[in-house]
Amino acid sequence: MVVQGFTVDLNKPLVFQVGHLGETYQEWVHQPIVSKEGPRFFESDFWEFLTRTVWWAIPVIWLPVVCWCISMSVRMGHTTPQIALMVVCGIFVWTLLEYTLHRFLFHIKTKSYWGNTLHYLLHGCHHKHPMDGLRLVFPPAATAILCIPFWNLLKLISTPSTTPVLFGGGLLGYVMYDVTHYYLHHGQPTSEMPKSLKKYHLNHHFRVQDKGFGITSALWDRVFGTLPLGKAGEKSR
Rank of each mutant, 00 (worst) to 15 (best):
S71Q: 12
S73A: 03
S73K: 04
S73H: 01
V74K: 07
V74W: 05
R75W: 08
M76N: 04
H78R: 09
T79E: 07
T80I: 13
T80K: 14
P81D: 07
A84V: 15
M86Y: 06
V88Q: 03
C89H: 00
G90C: 12
G90F: 10
F92Q: 01
V93Q: 10
V93N: 05
V93L: 15
V93C: 14
W94G: 02
W94H: 03
L96V: 14
Y99I: 14
T100I: 14
L101C: 11
H102R: 07
H102E: 01
H102A: 12
F104Y: 14
F106I: 11
F106G: 06
H107F: 08
K109C: 02
T110Y: 00
S112R: 10
S112M: 08
S112K: 04
Y113D: 11
W114P: 08
G115R: 04
L118Q: 04
Y120D: 08
L121T: 10
H123L: 13
H123G: 14
H126G: 08
H126L: 06
H127N: 11
K128Y: 08
H129G: 02
P130A: 07
P130F: 05
G133W: 00
G133S: 12
L134E: 09
R135A: 12
R135Q: 14
R135D: 15
L136T: 15
L136M: 15
F138W: 05
P139M: 03
P140E: 02
P140R: 05
A142S: 06
